[in-house]
Design a protein around this nucleic acid. Structure first.
Length: 117
DNA sequence: GGTCTGACCGGCG
DNA sequence: ACGCCGGCCAGAC
């Protein structure tokens, strides 16, 4: 069993991403890089975004709570409408200024810290 | 089966 | 402060 990980792990990857995103508390946001780091991929943030793209098929995956490290709503264009993302965030009490999360540092939810890896 | 892109990040000049 | 570049993994053509 030298190589226990096979194609099965890749499926788990998407699943893991969804789980972490689902764990994001209401009114909080996190970044792609944070999730990637939590999953063990320091620079795999790109793939997290790719996973989010597939998250449209999944339910209860608040992709709108996931922004880039700048706090910018980079994925807003991939929603039903470009305004859906910030609309949902505002609805949760997150203030959005110029497509960017206000007090991003305060609202930032780090899975590694919060979940205590 | 090789190549390119992708909702990113961090380092370097 | 800003722009450019490589890296990382997986899916689509």
């Amino acid at each position: 069993m030298a190589k226990a990980k096979t194609k099965k792990s890749k499926e788990n990857f998407f699943n893991d991403v969804y789980e972490v995103v689902r764990l994001i508390p209401k009114g909080r946001v996190t970044s792609y890089g944070a999730i990637a780091a939590f999953l063990g991929m320091r620079s795999g943030a790109r793939m997290v975004g790719w996973a989010m793209n597939a998250s449209h098929s999944e339910r209860n995956v608040p992709a709108h709570r996931v922004v880039n490290s700048q706090g910018l709503l980079t994925g807003r264009h991939h929603f039903e409408t470009p305004g859906t993302m910030e609309k949902l965030l505002k609805r949760e009490g997150v203030r959005i200024v110029r497509h960017q999360v206000a007090d991003f540092k305060k609202l930032f939810w780090n899975p590694v810290t919060e979940l205590g890896l």
